[in-house]
């Protein structure tokens, strides 16, 4: 019966999902606090998120790596959860939904890479 077993390719997506989930749990809430509340409400110095500062951050290699990790891994985490939730609520989504879900994450990742590249070093 082992001959009939097909290997699941889920580890690729599960690891991306896990990495995104871990990152979101560690810094997701903090990022929301800083970007949505602390800076707009003036709890942090007003120029913390100034254009010049953010541009410098995005042009730094470590800054780029951070932005890519946050955007891409959050994307992969979210689409994996959405895809499996569809299954849970009884929508037995096939290849189409799979391509749509993971395709979105791939597009988001490539877009981020492109943006980080074109913004310069």
């Amino acid at each position: 019966m082992n001959q009939a077993l097909k290997r699941s390719h889920e580890p690729i997506f599960w690891l991306l999902f896990g990495a995104g989930g871990m990152l979101a749990a560690l810094i997701g809430a903090m990022l929301v606090l800083i970007t949505a509340f602390a800076v707009p409400l003036g709890l942090l110095p007003a120029d913390a998120f100034s254009y010049a500062n953010m541009l410098a951050f995005a042009q730094n290699l470590f800054g780029k790596a951070f932005i890519l990790a946050v955007v891409a891994l959050f994307f992969w985490h979210a689409v994996h959860r959405i895809f499996h939730s569809l299954h849970d609520v009884g929508i037995h989504a096939g290849t189409g939904a799979r391509v749509l879900c993971y395709g979105t994450a791939l597009a988001g990742t490539l877009l981020t890479v492109w943006a980080l590249w074109t913004i310069g070093f």
Partner: peptide, 14 residues
Amino acid sequence: MALINSEVGVFNCT
């Protein structure tokens, strides 16, 4: 391991 790795294996779990 083959069973664990397979499409009827652990990755069905959510």
